[in-house]
């Protein structure tokens, strides 16, 4: 079943159009990877879906049009974003960062606390540093924190904006394992944008190639990997 679908999604900054009509789909339980170089419009796609920038076109989530919804309504609906470049709250403690992730939830403080402890079990390093300022964490830890924070809103769809950025390959690998595990165990659907094709392709159900604001190719990881031109031009292996 389709969870998220965009049709002719355009967005930009002032006079500059970055996305020139994007059609993508994320089905329930999938990990969809969007690959693209710097400036292709990956972050813009994420921000447009999350509603933090002006956008045109259709964005459907669970069959409802959300292109006019406010960011908080979108989060409440179950889409959470892990922003690019570890967008944590550096002055806040790790635990407070995670509590902020649960901001839209209307249930009791006790159940928020229960979730907090649950994710601390999944990310034991965050548990160790729960009282530390987020800004003092290492890059990998901050990225984990950003994911954990997004999970605190109990999303159905997780948008990950270049989680590997600036991280060592080993840490990136660990991170992707976590994402795969969340997908498998929790049934979390994921839309992940990356430059790092190699690692991301392995776990992708489907892949989109984004180039200067347009989708230029799509298909399963195997299909795209089999196409020589695409492989050489975009995937670099």
């Amino acid at each position: 079943m389709t969870l998220l679908r965009t049709q002719g999604l355009t967005a930009g900054y002032g006079p500059l159009t970055v996305l020139e009509g994007i059609d993508i789909e994320v089905n329930e339980g999938e990990i969809v990877v969007m690959l693209g170089a710097n400036g292709a419009g990956k972050t813009t796609t994420m921000r447009a879906i999350s509603g933090v920038m002006p956008r045109q076109g259709i964005i459907e989530y669970e069959g409802r049009a959300i292109q006019k919804a406010s960011p908080d309504a979108i989060v409440r609906g179950g889409i959470a974003q892990v922003p690019q470049g570890r967008g944590t709250f550096p002055e806040l403690s790790v635990a407070d960062n995670m509590r902020a992730g649960a901001y839209v939830r209307r249930d009791s403080a006790a159940s928020v606390q229960a979730d907090l402890e649950k994710w601390f079990e999944v990310f034991p390093r965050l548990a160790e540093r729960h009282a530390q300022r987020a800004g003092s964490l290492s890059g990998g830890e901050q990225q984990m924190l950003a994911i954990a924070r997004a999970l605190m809103s109990r999303p159905k769809l997780l948008l990950c904006d270049e989680p590997s950025m600036g991280l060592a390959p080993l840490i990136t690998q660990e991170l992707f394992h976590v994402i795969e595990r969340l997908n498998r165990d929790e049934g979390l659907s994921v839309l992940l944008v990356e430059q790092n094709a190699n690692l991301a392709m392995h776990m992708a159900s489907r892949v989109y190639l984004l180039e200067t604001g347009r989708i230029v190719a799509s298909g399963s990881a195997a299909e795209l990997g089999a196409d020589d031109t695409i492989r050489k031009a975009y995937l670099g292996f």
Partner: peptide, 20 residues
Amino acid sequence: GLAMRAVASNSESAKLVGIR
């Protein structure tokens, strides 16, 4: 208070966790 601190710390991320 948490929302106020979050907005002061990183306004874009605050929006992304659903803080108005």
